[in-house]
């Protein structure tokens, strides 16, 4: 494999509070290769968005990176400040957020927003930028692109707006896209359109994608590899098919099992007892041990980290027979 586009090593984000030091992201490591889609799943509070925001330097104070390294195309970026970080955002890393209405400026036409981004990051003329903006809108499937260029965001439907956001994220030709719940606010049929679009564009350009979502179905269909996060830590990381069909970490297993799809035909869904610990009351050892059916003494004081080559951060990973994984 060639050098990864994005490489996160032992990333730790901490928030100092009156009640003590909180750690929403705890020693997370993963890589994303060129053209690869990495799905990051987890429930609310698992730290998946926080890790994404750390990469683009959008952590809100007092949250800050206190450990680890972030490398983008061979350059270390976690120490970048102000202007240097701003140049990186949009140019090298594109972003797609959940709510397309709040990520577009309501007072500017979408043409202005697209050309502004391109003029900022690429050395091209105004006319050239406008031409490229039309091409970008056509590429994301907006009909009559040259006329819609002068429309305002409110004149588009939700799905069309998300297409504009994708055009905006891709217009400076970044090497990495961070898509944080890009289809959560959309209907099923529109979601399918947006996912297909994102997949096609990134494959054509070889853009690496960090797809943050809580929807296992979207991950299964879109991602190449998947990282499962729990309470700020990486519980499992591996190829999407293996993680979903034969999860090794008991949390992944419980999470997959509690989706209505996995419990098809059962009158009751499988459920994980209890709930995710609060950051203020993180259990010792493995964060999942109070809810884990396989927990033993060692889990209570020794959080086994994920080893290189292994999939799950667990002392007693679930083993699967060959036919289950097939």
């Amino acid at each position: 494999m060639s050098d990864p586009v994005l490489s996160i090593r032992d990333l730790t984000v901490e928030i100092p509070t009156r009640g003590g030091l909180l750690r929403p992201v705890d020693q997370v490591s993963y890589d994303i290769a060129k053209g690869e889609i990495l799905g990051v799943v987890g429930e609310s509070g698992a730290g998946k968005s926080m890790a994404g925001n750390a990469v683009i330097g959008l952590l809100n104070r007092p949250a800050k990176i206190t450990g680890g390294e972030i490398w983008l195309n061979g350059t270390r970026i976690d120490k970048l400040q102000g202007e240097n970080m701003r140049r990186l955002r949009g140019k090298d890393i594109g972003m797609v957020f959940q709510d397309p209405l709040t990520s577009l400026n309501p007072l500017l036409t979408i043409g202005d927003q697209l050309t502004e981004t391109m003029l900022q990051h690429l050395s091209i003329t105004q006319t050239e930028a406008r031409k490229r903006a039309i091409a970008a809108l056509e590429e994301v499937g907006i009909p009559a692109a040259s006329e819609r260029l002068d429309s305002y965001p409110h004149e588009f439907s939700g799905g069309m707006r998300q297409r504009v956001v994708i055009a905006l994220a891709l217009c400076a030709e970044p090497s990495l896209i961070i898509a944080d719940e890009p289809t959560t606010a959309l209907d099923v049929s529109v979601q399918a359109q947006i996912i297909a679009l994102l997949k096609r564009l990134c494959r054509d350009r070889g853009t690496a994608v960090m797809l943050i979502t809580h929807d296992m179905g979207v991950i299964a269909e879109t991602a190449d590899r998947v990282a499962v996060m729990y309470a700020g830590r990486l519980a499992e990381l591996g190829p999407v098919r293996e993680v979903i069909t034969a999860p090794e970490h008991p949390y992944t297993d419980g999470l997959m099992g509690s989706t209505p799809l996995a419990s098809k035909g059962l009158k009751r869904l499988r459920q994980i007892p209890g709930s995710m610990p609060r950051l203020t009351a993180m259990p010792t050892g493995c964060a999942f041990h109070p809810r884990c059916p396989k927990a033993q003494d060692i889990c209570r004081h020794d959080p086994r980290p994920r080893r290189d080559g292994g999939r799950a951060a667990c002392h007693f990973p679930i083993t699967h027979s060959a036919e289950e994984t097939a």
Binding site: A220, E221, T245, T259
Partner: peptide, 10 residues
């Protein structure tokens, strides 16, 4: 259109 858990790379 609904995403499926077994729809790998669909």
């Amino acid at each position: 259109a609904a995403p499926k858990m077994d729809g790998f790379g669909r």
